[in-house]
Design a protein around this nucleic acid. Structure first.
Length: 566
RNA sequence: GGUGCGGUAGUUCAGUUGGUUAGAAUAUCGGCUUGUCACGCCGGGGGUCACGGGUUCAAGUCCCGUCCGCACCGCCA
């Protein structure tokens, strides 16, 4: 049917007789000649039809946009152009299939409802398709990289077991056993650990995962993870290999040389950026001030509650960024004044008496000012914007404010790529009901811990964990795993998992841990998010062929539906 | 579950303070046109203004509710 792809023909092919197949992208009828543009997955080429060749001309007259056709013709240079461009002189045209006018405009469609309803047509647009070509390059590279280093790709079950903690599961009823259910995997976590016990040593899988939670622009209910696990390694080793992989990937796909990834601890990330996934393209930093405002009078002033763990901190705006500062005051400070946002502008830091302009002048003593200046590098005309609140809320606000100010001041280097590791997450975190939960998952190993502390002060224990953050997106995360039955059980106990459930849900796993489980660690990357970044897409949907809507509906097939009664 | 933004020809959009028969471009259909490349020219068809209610002499426009899409919070790594 076809000798060449439309997009692969070039100047060297002039004179050849070719057969091409594709869709009519453009149709211009000038009366006695007709120009067509025909598109296939590799590109498009112009077809020239002349009335002197009656057979092809009569066929060409019948064509309309998006008809699927075959053209047999001779490659020739375009007439009346100086550039080296070619076209096909049509000898014969076969209509393989007609098409109704499309319900979307392939080259100018902004309406997401309709684009994703007719996604199979949307994908005809070369720009849309290109993202999937890049996605394929990414997976292909990752496979080659890992296989070269002795990783073995092994598939784990899709029909598996529901587990407590973490996200809600997608549930599949069993036909054979009434009232019993499979769950779709949230990740292959337990199975890949079992594979380590098997002695697989290095495993990977490009794995579909499922989480029944609400969607976001970077979250879909089914998504793809690059899932990796290694035996006999410390966390630094796995980080090194993965850093190499991501660096080479960026070089290969977008020709970017990422600098050596910074490593910062979870605590420090919150201290400096208010977030455990900071965007380092934003140069603004946070200055810690909690220690200066411990006294009750300050707490009252800032409306802080006594029993909370509070944080007072400021975003430091160096004067070099403050050319449009009047506007900043207006938009940020005045609007938010009542919402506990305070500011200090340093007029004079050099002399004995420090001069400031501030809406909290009455509570800032010279001593405090001096200490702030001593600890931090603060110059004349620098501004601090303060936030005082319960620690988590304060961090949240600081993160948002840091971003907002970065945008307003136009200092975020959007064209750069900044990758970093955030390590040492706390092993446990308290939920709303004040109950201890694992920050990551139940199998994460504590780091440098003393058994007594684990029992008495579990909140102080950190885990041997690491997240990879690029431009503020969490694109991967992992940890060293527990490889000891007793320790694993201790963790279950600390998060108050009942003994019965421990046995019923995880019994097989704790049993397995007894048979010489090697030390092991792993990581999982969000393939969709990586692809989103590398294709400069705004949403994860752009890089998933048939994504769900925010209401978790498949716009193409309308799933989910009521079961059909047979 | 909550907050915000949006829904007008097939498509992309305009529609002022509520005021005559809801417009444009493009697509589509018919005619003309021998080198177009955003081809051009002439003509035709195409609308339950998401849906349902309310206010009003009068609603695409104002109000309420529902549905759908998107963003965010909760949720989730």
């Amino acid at each position: 049917m076809r000798t060449h792809y439309c997009g692969k023909l070039n100047y060297q092919d002039i004179g050849k007789i070719v057969k091409v197949c594709g869709w009519v992208e453009k149709y211009i009828n000038l009366g006695k000649i007709i120009f067509l543009k025909i598109r296939d997955c590799k590109g498009s080429i112009q077809i020239f039809c002349d009335y002197k060749n009656n057979i092809s001309f009569q066929q060409a007259k019948k064509l309309r946009n998006e008809f699927c056709i075959q053209v047999i013709g001779i490659i020739q240079k375009k007439i009346k152009t100086f550039k080296k461009t070619i076209e096909i002189l049509a000898l014969k045209i076969n209509i393989l299939n007609k098409s109704k006018p499309l319900p979307i405009d392939l080259y100018n469609n902004k309406n997401q409802d309709i684009r994703f309803k007719y996604r199979y047509l949307d994908l005809r647009c070369p720009k849309v398709l290109k993202k999937f070509i890049i996605r394929n390059k990414i997976t292909s590279f990752i496979r080659k990289f890992l296989e070269k280093r002795n990783f073995l790709e092994i598939e784990t079950p899709i029909l598996t077991k529901s587990t407590p903690e973490g996200a809600r599961d997608y549930i599949v009823p069993s036909r054979i056993y009434k009232n019993k259910f499979y769950a779709l995997p949230q990740s292959p976590q337990i199975f890949k650990q079992l594979l380590m016990i098997s002695g697989i040593d290095r495993y990977y899988q490009i794995a579909k995962c499922f989480r029944d939670e609400d969607l976001r622009s970077d979250r879909q209910p089914e998504f793809t993870q690059v899932d990796i696990e290694m035996s006999f390694v410390h966390s630094s080793k796995i980080r090194n290999i993965m850093e190499q992989m991501i660096k080479k990937l960026f070089k290969k796909i977008i020709n970017i040389n990422l600098k050596k990834f910074k490593i910062i601890t979870y605590d420090k990330a919150l201290l400096l950026y208010g977030s455990d996934k900071p965007d380092l393209r934003n140069p603004l930093l946070i200055i810690e001030l909690t220690q200066f405002f411990k006294k009750t009078k300050y707490q009252k002033y800032f409306y802080l509650k006594k029993n909370n763990i509070n944080r007072v901190a400021a975003i430091h705006l160096p004067n070099k960024y403050l050319k449009n500062q009047k506007e900043i005051y207006k938009t940020i400070i005045k609007k938010n004044n009542k919402k506990k946002i305070f500011f200090i502008k340093f007029k004079n830091t050099n002399f004995k008496k420090i001069k400031i302009i501030s809406n909290i002048k009455e509570i800032i003593s010279q001593n405090i000012l001096k200490e702030i200046i001593n600890i931090n590098k603060i110059d004349n005309n620098d501004v601090l914007i303060l936030i005082a609140n319960e620690k988590n809320k304060a961090n949240n606000k600081l993160t948002k404010l840091r971003f907002k100010l970065g945008e307003k001041l136009n200092i975020i280097k959007y064209k750069k790529w900044k990758a970093l590791w955030v390590i040492n997450f706390p092993l446990f975190i308290k939920n709303k009901e004040n109950k201890l939960c694992c920050t990551n998952h139940l199998f994460t190993a504590p780091k440098n811990f003393i058994l007594k502390d684990l029992e008495k002060n579990p909140e102080k224990i950190i885990s041997d964990s690491y997240d990879l953050i690029i431009n503020g997106y969490e694109i991967g995360g992992g940890s060293v795993r527990i490889n000891n039955k007793n320790l694993q059980k201790k963790i279950f106990d600390i998060v108050q998992l009942k003994k019965k459930i421990q046995k019923k849900i995880f019994g097989f796993f704790t049993t397995a841990l007894q048979y010489g489980t090697p030390p092991h660690a792993g990581i999982a990357f969000g393939l969709d998010r990586i692809t989103m970044l590398l294709t400069h897409s705004k949403s994860i949907r752009e890089v998933i062929a048939f994504p769900k809507t925010t209401a978790a509906i498949c716009p193409v097939s309308d799933a989910p539906i009521n079961l059909l009664l047979k």
